[in-house]
Design a binder for these strands. Structure first.
Lengths: 224, 224
DNA sequence: CCCGGTCGGTGACCCAGGTCACACAAGTCC
DNA sequence: GGACTTGTGTGACCTGGGTCACCGACCGGG
């Protein structure tokens, strides 16, 4: 794919960019570039510096925090059409990354350098609203996350994760280990809960995947 | 105190406002008003609408989330010179309050109506930076909060809270119940931990107050 | 077809921390 | 100086969920 094509695809994926004035969009087009991450590659590390505003074109990255003990909490995942709102946090605050990120699969990004970002933030109301939109979304996501880790029993968090991970047909292609990582628990516990649900006919477990049989039932189980 | 005096005090408390252009500052002066909350009054409720950008002149408010079970987590407290960054979240996202707030003592606020807020956000880079500054600070606060609720043992969270609550002389004027609420636990547990620390000579407990005797020791106890 | 890595299942055990049920001490309001 | 309210101390108990130690099943490659 030529660079010009990549630029078009990028604008395709982020239609809101078209609200930029021609001049501003021109600046963006001229400075954007397109890094690619292999599966498992580190997108950025905790406390790393942020040199680009990142948007995701293809693939998926996982953003999480890790405790000294090695356990993790998932903050969010970014897929095609999403921006990595933590870069916003860094660029706006002048600080470093408050979490770390790893590509779950091969991931193609669009990256605007800091200078462009700052310039557009200063000059373009449309760009500001584009950026702030995702940023405020991140904020509200954090509140529900806080609720979950602070109050929700593990079952509920697992149910949520599972539902979030499932494709339209209700199949979630994840290992127990990955689920456990996402919700900050351990494999054994996840296996046990999944076992109970399978018993109850809510799900079916396969190697490397879980199929949701009774979506409603699962949502309800989670809820108490 | 006359209104004019209040305006002066307000600008005194928030010196960064002086970076606004005279015209913008004039708009702010013309529309700001000064609500007062009695101790225990509700500053705003969960899911409430936000009509003003709020800054705290005197007093203290507590912002927290509550579970269905009635347990709470403290998000942060705002004192003199602080802005209530959740109002920013509301105003920027166009949504409602993601948490609730109660005045811990008589609290005097400065309030800029939405219209002024929007206007200045659109026009004044200085105002934007003033607002975003606190907003990004909130964001990073949330990350450390997530860390704590997800990973830290209760002792550690209690130690932090206690240290945060203590005045320069090391006296924290709080009941066990309040501490428990802040960290999302229950009185009995807090009493027990406090008892152990008193035994170990780290603190001294009085009715309605805790005195920190060995600050360093307390910080260390928390840390593992 | 065998062999090593990745998954998943299961039981025994343990512990932080929440729940319940009191008893008691300090203020405080008449 | 009762009587009531608010803050605290403490023991008995329970349970979610993490830890440990395995074992067995599947899977892809030589």
């Amino acid at each position: 794919m030529t660079d010009a094509q990549k630029v078009e695809r990028w604008i395709d994926r982020f239609p809101l960019l078209q609200a930029l004035s021609p001049a501003h969009l021109q600046i963006a087009r001229g400075t954007v570039h397109f890094p690619v991450l292999d599966a498992g590659a580190v997108a950025y590390e905790l406390d790393g510096e942020c040199a680009n505003y990142l948007m995701c074109l293809e693939g998926r990255t996982r953003i999480f925090r890790m405790s000294e003990g090695g356990r993790e909490v998932l903050i969010y995942k970014v897929g095609p059409g999403g921006t990595c709102a933590l870069t916003t946090q860094c660029l706006l605050s002048g600080g470093n990354f408050p979490a770390q990120s790893i590509a779950e699969e091969r991931t193609e990004l669009a990256a605007l350098p800091v200078s462009t970002f700052q310039h557009l933030m200063g000059e373009s109301a449309a760009f500001r609203s584009f950026v702030m939109d995702d940023y405020t979304r991140l904020m509200s996501g954090l509140f529900t996350l806080i609720d979950e880790v602070a109050f929700a029993p593990l079952k509920q968090r697992l149910a949520h994760r599972l539902l979030a991970e499932a494709d339209p047909r209700g199949v979630a292609a994840v290992t127990h280990q990955k689920l456990a990582d996402d919700i900050g628990s351990v494999r054994e516990v996840v296996s046990r809960i999944l076992g109970q649900w399978a018993e109850a006919g809510l799900i079916e477990v396969r190697r490397g995947a879980v199929e949701i049989v009774d979506r409603a039932g699962l949502e309800a189980t989670g809820r108490k």
